[in-house]
Amino acid sequence: MSKTITLTGAAGAIGYAALFRIASGQLLGQNEKIKLKLLEIEPALQAAEGTAMELEDSAFPLLESIDITSDANEAFDGCDVGMLIGAQPRKQGMERADLLEANGAIFKPQGEAINSHADDDVRILVVGNPANTNALIAMSNAPDVPHDRFTSMTRLDENRAVSMLARKLSVSVEDVEDLVVWGNHSPTMFPDLFNAKVNGERAADQVDLDWYENEYMPRVGKRGAAVIEARGASSAASAANAAIDHVHDWALGAEGLHSMAVRSEGQYGIEEGLISSFPVRLHSGGGYEVVEGLEINDFARSKIDITVNELKEERDAVKELGLIG
Rank of each mutant, 00 (worst) to 15 (best):
R160P: 08
V280E: 03
K168W: 02
D210K: 13
E177D: 09
K197H: 08
A233C: 14
E174T: 12
M217R: 15
A236F: 14
A233P: 07
N199E: 11
K168Y: 06
F278Y: 02
D144C: 08
R223A: 14
I244L: 11
I244Q: 01
A261V: 01
L179G: 03
L179W: 04
K197R: 10
R149Y: 06
I228Q: 13
L257V: 02
W250V: 01
A230L: 12
P187Q: 08
W250S: 00
G256E: 02
W211F: 13
L252H: 13
V207N: 01
P218T: 09
M260C: 07
S172N: 11
K197G: 01
P146E: 14
R160C: 12
H283C: 08
P143E: 00
M260S: 05
A240F: 05
S172P: 09
Y216N: 03
E265M: 11
I244Y: 00
G253T: 02
G200P: 04
W211A: 06
G221V: 04
A237W: 14
N159M: 11
H147N: 13
R149I: 03
R219S: 15
G200S: 07
L282D: 00
N195H: 03
L179F: 03
P279D: 10
Q206A: 08
D157E: 10
F150A: 01
W182L: 04
E177M: 10
T151W: 06
L169V: 02
A196E: 06
R281S: 12
M189K: 12
S186H: 11
N195R: 04
Y212H: 09
A203S: 08
M217H: 15
Y216S: 06
A196S: 06
R263D: 03
D245W: 07
L193Q: 04
V162C: 02
R155Y: 14
E255L: 09
I270E: 00
A233R: 15
M217L: 13
E229P: 04
I244F: 02
A237S: 12
D148L: 05
S264Y: 07
S170G: 08
P191H: 02
